[in-house]
Nucleic acid binder design. Structure first.
Length: 303
RNA sequence: GGUACCAUAGCUCAGUAGGUAGAGCAACGGACUGAAAAUCCGUGUGUCCUUGGUUCGAUCCCGAGUGGUACCA
C-alpha cells in the first residue's frame, strides 16, 4: 500500500486555466525529471474526444508516458472517487520507479480529490438515479427540495437549493443508503504518503483569451466538426456535455449557424477558464507562475 | 467644398417634456464532496465627443469646433 512508501516521494501538480499552456510545460518538466505524467482532466480521458479536449500531441505523448488519457469510452460511467482510487494505485507503482511524478490538468475537483481525499459513500444504482432524474424532469426543483428536507434536514440547510444537481446527488445517496447524505460528510483531509507541490500557471487575461481564440480555430482546422458529427448520435451522454461539442451539436440541430457556434465555443471556453481560476484561487498551497518561467518552474519541481 | 443626419457602457442601441442614465450581447465577481469542460448564484463597469452660452441646474435647448455617415457638387 502507498502508506508503506518512503516520504521523500513527491507529486508535482501543474495546473491552471484551459489553454494556458500546461501541457508543454508539464512535458518539459517530466523530461527534465525523467518521469511520467498523470493527467487530471475529466474529459481527456474519453478516447472519442481527442480534438475538442486538446489532448497532447503525438510527439508529446511519445516523449513522456502519459496516464489517464483516452483510457475511457464516452459510454463508461466514471466519477471523481474512481479517479482518486485509481490514481493512488498508479502512484504506488510509479513511486517505485520515480522519486517525482508530474500531474497536469485543469479539473479542480479531481486534483483536490487526489491531494486531500474525498469522502466515501456508495455508488448510486442506475435505477435510483433514473428515479431522481425523473422527479426533477417531471416535478421540478421544488419537489426535490421537499424530498431532501425530509430525507436530510441538515443538508437541506446547507446546500444551494437553486442547484438541482447538488440536491439530486444528496437525495440519491439518501435513497441508496437509507442514511442522510450529510452523515457521510467528514470534510477531513486524508493524509498522503508523498509530498505535493502545486504550481498554478496563469497569464494576463487578454493573453489567455487570445490563446483560447486561436486554439478554437486550430481545433476546427484539425477537424473538430467531423469529430463532433461522428459523436452526434451520443450527444446526450454526460461526457459530451462539454464545451466544443455541445455548441456544434446545436449547430447540427439548426439552432444557430457555424460561425455562431464557433463564437459560442470561444465564449464558453473563456467562462470555463474563469471558473477554473476561481476554484484554484482559494487554494493556499498554489504557487502561481507564468508558463514562460520554465526555469523557475523547474526549480520549484526540484525543491 | 455644400447640405442633411449622427456622436450615450467593450459592442449594437434606447432614454431623459432640463433634476448626472438603461436594455441586449460581451465582460466582471463568487460557490462547488462520485455528471465537475458539469451545475448554480451575484454585479452596470459611463468625462452621455469637446467647448462656449441660456438656466438654480444641461447628456438633453442654442452657437462653435472635432469626428463619422449619406447625398449633392
Amino acid at each position: 500500500m502507498h502508506t508503506d512508501l518512503p516520504v521523500h516521494n513527491k507529486l508535482v501538480v501543474i495546473t491552471g486555466p484551459t489553454a494556458v499552456g500546461k501541457t508543454s510545460v508539464a512535458v518539459e518538466v517530466a523530461k527534465a525529471l525523467r518521469t511520467e505524467i498523470i493527467s487530471c482532466d475529466s474529459r481527456q480521458m474519453y478516447r472519442e474526444m481527442r480534438i475538442g479536449t486538446a489532448v497532447p500531441g503525438a510527439e508529446e505523448l511519445s516523449a513522456v508516458p502519459h496516464h489517464f488519457i483516452g483510457n475511457l469510452s464516452i459510454h463508461d460511467y466514471y466519477n471523481v472517487s474512481m479517479f482518486e482510487q485509481e490514481c493512488l494505485q498508479l502512484l504506488d507503482r510509479l513511486f517505485q520507479k520515480y522519486q517525482t511524478v508530474v500531474m497536469t490538468g485543469g479539473s479542480g475537483l479531481y486534483i483536490d480529490a487526489l491531494c486531500k481525499g474525498i469522502d466515501d459513500f456508495p455508488t448510486v444504482d442506475l435505477e435510483i438515479r433514473r428515479t431522481v432524474t425523473g422527479w426533477f424532469e417531471n416535478e421540478g426543483v421544488e419537489y426535490l427540495r421537499r424530498q431532501l428536507k425530509m430525507l436530510d434536514p441538515e443538508h437541506y440547510t446547507k446546500v444551494d437549493l437553486r442547484n438541482h444537481k447538488r440536491i439530486m446527488k444528496a437525495i440519491e445517496v439518501c435513497l441508496q443508503t437509507g442514511k442522510p447524505y450529510s452523515s457521510f460528510l467528514t470534510a477531513q483531509t486524508r493524509k498522503r504518503s508523498f509530498r505535493i507541490v502545486k504550481l498554478g500557471l496563469n497569464r494576463p487575461r487578454e493573453e489567455l483569451f487570445e490563446r483560447i481564440n486561436q486554439r478554437t480555430g486550430l481545433m476546427m482546422e484539425e477537424g473538430l466538426l467531423e469529430e463532433a458529427q461522428a459523436l452526434y448520435p451520443h450527444r446526450h451522454l454526460n461526457a459530451l456535455n462539454t464545451v466544443g461539442y455541445k455548441e456544434l451539436f446545436a449547430y447540427m440541430d439548426g439552432v444557430h449557424d457555424l460561425d455562431t457556434a464557433i463564437e459560442l465555443i470561444r465564449r464558453n471556453t473563456r467562462r470555463y477558464a474563469k471558473r477554473q481560476l476561481t476554484w484554484f484561487a482559494r487554494d493556499p498551497d498554489m504557487q502561481w507562475l507564468h508558463p514562460g518561467q520554465l526555469d523557475e518552474i523547474k526549480a520549484k519541481c526540484g525543491e
